[in-house]
Computed example of a mutant assay.
Amino acid sequence: MIEQARALRMMIFDVDGIMTDGSLYYTDAGEELKAFNSLDGHGLRMLASTGVKLAIITGRQSRLVEHRARNLQIDYLYQGAHDKLATFQELLAAASLTAEQCGYMGDDVIDLPVMRRVAFSVTVPEAPAFVREHAHHVTQAGGGRGAVREVCELVMRAQGTLDGVLAQYLR
């Protein structure tokens, strides 16, 4: 697992169930609400600071996700991706990367075509057993509850950049 994470140049994330706990909230007016974890967000910023590109591929379409991606300076955002494998191929071309240089974090069967092609696939404990069986790693933390941060730190640790990133906060 460490060897797989060491070679990553891009980490790709699903949203619902990964960056959130998977709950969907709607107001009476029909507006969608999501809760994002600030520790996850800072983990993404730290990982990006090491040169690892960040991407989101999600099957849903939401202005909230667009705002979150912009706030975190996510390099690539693909929403409404019902065929995540085709979207992944598009992302590889746009980023001039290979599947072997990418990691992916997803939590449902729609994520499996991408998870099975990347160098490092991750899921959360709440994912269906079938998805967990096909992941290289299952986080300790749940989706929307620190799982993204856990993966960001794992990648930085594997690449030898975590100590340097954390040292900035000890000045």
Rank of each mutant, 00 (worst) to 15 (best):
L91Q: 10
R60G: 10
R117C: 13
Y169W: 15
Y78T: 08
G22W: 12
D40K: 03
Q159A: 10
T87L: 10
A86F: 07
E32K: 02
G59A: 11
T20C: 05
I74R: 01
I74D: 00
E150P: 01
I12F: 09
V15E: 02
D83N: 15
H82D: 06
R132P: 02
A167V: 07
Q4S: 10
A135L: 11
A129W: 07
H137P: 00
R145S: 05
R9Y: 05
S23E: 11
Y76I: 12
A127V: 14
G103C: 11
Q168P: 00
Q140R: 14
L54K: 07
Q4A: 15
L33W: 03
S38Y: 10
L24W: 11
L54C: 10
R157S: 13
G80P: 01
G43H: 07
K53Q: 15
L33K: 05
L8G: 01
G59R: 05
M115C: 09
F36P: 00
G43V: 10
A5R: 02
H137R: 12
G164D: 09
I2H: 04
L64R: 08
L170M: 08
P128S: 13
L44Q: 05
T98S: 14
M1D: 04
H136N: 03
H137D: 00
A86I: 10
S49R: 02
H134D: 03
G142K: 13
L39F: 15
Q89K: 15
E66S: 12
T87W: 06
D108H: 03
R9T: 04
R171E: 09
Q159K: 09
E150A: 06
V15L: 07
F120I: 14
Q89M: 12
D14M: 12
L54Q: 04
N71G: 07
V122A: 01
P113S: 08
V124F: 04
G143R: 02
